[in-house]
């Protein structure tokens, strides 16, 4: 299998891509400290699609991961995805 090991910065870029592709988010808004609801403008329905899009992007199942509930900022998502990689759930994209 053709694996591509990715670093944390690449992961962050891919998370940003999810926001740009799925929610038409302006790139300038994509800062680590941006609040997902208040600053980026997503709502509860968007979170459903965010989970689906992250699952697709990183080929990982996260729908039932309890850690999702504590995500507030874009930085929280970066860290969540990095943790998933460190746990061995993400090895290729």
């Amino acid at each position: 299998m053709d694996h591509e090991i990715i670093d944390d910065e690449q992961l962050k870029r891919l998370v940003n891509e999810v926001f740009e592709e799925s929610f038409e988010t302006n790139t300038e808004l994509l800062k680590a400290d941006a609040m997902i609801f208040e600053d980026i403008g997503l709502d509860s329905l968007d979170i459903v699609d965010l989970v689906v899009a992250l699952q697709k992007k990183f080929k990982v199942q996260i729908r039932d991961d309890e850690r999702i509930r504590s995500i507030r900022t874009l930085g929280d998502i970066y860290q969540f995805i990095i943790n998933l990689k460190n746990e061995g759930h993400i090895s290729e994209v």
Binding site: L45, D46, V48, D49, V52, Q55, K56, Q61, R63
Partner: peptide, 17 residues
């Protein structure tokens, strides 16, 4: 929607919309 579900009989990839 049905193509998504029927791929693996899995609803978890359905969009909220």
């Amino acid at each position: 929607a049905f193509s998504t579900i029927l791929r693996n009989y899995d609803i978890s990839e359905l969009s909220s919309m």
